[in-house]
Design a binder for these strands. Structure first.
Lengths: 364, 364
DNA sequence: AATAGTTTCGTGTGCGCACACACAAATATA
DNA sequence: TATATTTGTGTGTGCGCACACGAAACTATT
């Protein structure tokens, strides 16, 4: 392994000079800089990140702005755990990670959490954008402070975010349609159940629905999916009534698509008897949703690898901060198709306890 | 971040003593050892792997024994690239990785490659077991030299391998059956096409077939999959004849399962016209197989994440060598269900050029 | 009690790099 | 020409740890 010392010797300069060239610190004459650069390139030199991390005086700070999770909606726990795991992995590289959470139905908490983010004086920020107006404000601040920022899970356009880490939601919805269509009878009708609960415009969900609908259009299939919007899916009694009434009036509906992570709530609203005659597809392997797969009430789940999203985002920014590696503009994680049989091998890492985030992929 | 120096200060001993306790180097009185250990545990101390790697005098050597790949059978390129990627990632931790390949139909090359492995004086070995007799010999040598070894991709029993990294092949086959059955007509018959080409007993393939068959038995489905064994699937003309004859004689066969990565060869042996009436499922997203997905000749591929297998194995052993982390006995990677629409997001990292193994998950 | 042998422990050095500081050379200013 | 100012370059220190060396403290032997 070639070191700075080796380069210095070959160029007949001191290690300090080589260091200046490598980091463009300036104060080196053009002639010697060129000479050193030539030797660096010829040997394909890269700094030893281990030694670099150890010697680095200035510690880096990555701050994360992410929705909070609750027992009823565990989805956001996964990205959080991914961030946490990455944080322990990069700690010894001199990178600190701090997370701040907000309530997705309270824009004030969003702004407040962001203020806390700023207090950490971050070198870079990972954020899940919510509330368009507030987001614009937040990003204006980040840009004037020249803090690079990365969007996680939700992709929005018109900003100079350094990258996006998440899923191609359109294709995910398209795949859901394909899986359902292939299993359905000729005469089946399709229903999309959407929750109006969180009034925030969520691009991911609308993109999924668009992909879902476009599957039938593109493939010239004479199916017109119907949409049932429910105000508060968390209210089981009301929702049960609404869904029952709808299904009673549309007996040809054999297929239900829930473009959010709340499919377990929909399942809770449908009689067991009727469930057996339906094919359901939803998103995300939260514990509740996974349970629905295992008891055969849901046919497929599409996972967006939320744990990996958090993990990848932190690692990406770390590489950027330490090695100046520019990440790709869009980083689309795999679209996982989960069924009863393979769910156990997927995301074993996602819902482990926070105290031992290292035990992944392990089968008991 | 707490350091050895901090511990030493608190225990009123020198850093050297703490170091001895941490690494069980001996030469510490029971009393002081206990005192230091108590403080270590109370602070939940772990060595800084970065500093540790930098200071480590003795470099570790991981050697890999893996089948070679050819243009016609690119499968083994993926684990190789995974190993390669991991190698660059762990290089600065003082871990060297060397790969040695062998021809899967030539047991001599297996033994010879292993001799080369031994010459590197490895601290640990990753191997894909082949040829039962020779494997026993090899493992005897490893055990007498007390070199820990890990099985990759192919799981065999009766050895003291430190771990297995790969897929649950039985379940993978079971899933293949389920996917096919759900799409098939009531009257369809199922055909398994197996290649006898490589005469070596491959547990993975027989496990897949077992899982495939058991799906129908467990679920009491009156389907008896038929098996067609082909001597040399690489011989397209002969195979074409054989398959055509078989399908002509069994017109109810609508579903074909190929429990290996050679499904593209089977596709090449079937008329386009007939292909449209068949549902095919195979394994592994090699470029040729992926092409079959994209042109609709294959419905599903099941991926065993070969790149990740190689990568994971190296990282696992690195953690063991550096931090003494004992890996789990079996590490089952996810069983990926791939279709035309999601294959592009899967394993983008697998078939990239060897020169830039860092560009993963990237969408152009 | 003196010596040799053994156990227990502290000190020093270097891994490869980042960065502060000192100092020399080149140039500008008086 | 002498002095101030600006480049350009070398040296030294420490990040946290692994490990060699040697010095105490202690035990065994005569």
């Amino acid at each position: 392994m070639i070191t700075i010392k080796d380069i210095a010797k070959e160029a007949h300069v001191s290690e300090g000079t080589v260091d200046r060239v490598i980091h463009n610190r300036g104060g080196v004459s053009k002639k010697t800089a060129a000479k050193v650069r030539e030797i660096l390139e010829r040997h394909n030199f890269t700094v030893n990140p281990v030694a670099s991390a150890l010697a680095m005086k200035k510690k880096h700070q990555i701050s994360v702005l992410i929705p909070e999770y609750t027992e009823a909606d565990l989805f956001w726990k996964s990205p959080y755990l991914g961030v946490l795991k990455a944080a322990t992995d990069v700690k010894s590289f001199g990178v600190q990670v701090h997370s701040f959470t907000f309530n997705q139905s309270d824009s004030d908490s969003y702004v407040k959490a962001f203020e806390d983010v700023l207090k950490t004086e971050p070198s870079a920020v990972i954020m899940v954008p919510n509330f368009s107006e507030e987001t614009t404000q937040i990003i204006n601040q980040l840009e004037s402070l020249k803090i690079p920022y990365l969007f996680l899970n939700i992709d929005i356009n018109g900003y100079n975010n350094m990258s996006y880490v998440g899923q191609d939601s359109y294709t995910a919805g398209y795949i859901a349609a394909k899986l359902l269509h292939r299993q359905a009878q000729e005469t089946s009708e399709f229903l999309i159940i959407q929750s109006r609960h969180n009034s925030i415009k969520n691009n991911a969900i609308s993109d999924r629905v668009e992909g879902f609908n476009n599957y039938f259009i593109e493939n010239k299939i004479k199916v017109q999916p119907q949409i049932l919007k429910i105000d508060d899916i968390a209210n089981t009694e009301d929702s049960r009534e609404i869904i029952k009434a709808y299904l009673d009036n549309h007996l040809q509906i054999k297929v239900v698509f829930v473009p959010s992570s709340r499919i377990y709530r929909v399942v809770n609203c449908i009689d067991k008897k009727r469930l057996k005659q339906l094919e359901l597809v939803g998103f995300d392997n939260t514990p509740q949703n996974t349970a629905c797969l295992l008891n055969d009430s849901v046919s497929f789940l599409i996972s967006q690898k939320p744990f990996d999203q958090g993990y990848t985002a932190v690692r990406l920014l770390t590489d950027y901060l330490i090695e100046k590696k520019q990440p790709a503009e869009k980083i689309y994680l795999p679209i996982d198709i989960l069924i009863k049989e393979n769910v156990q091998y997927n995301g074993r890492d996602e819902y482990i306890s926070e105290s031992e985030p290292s035990a992944q992929y392990v089968k008991e």
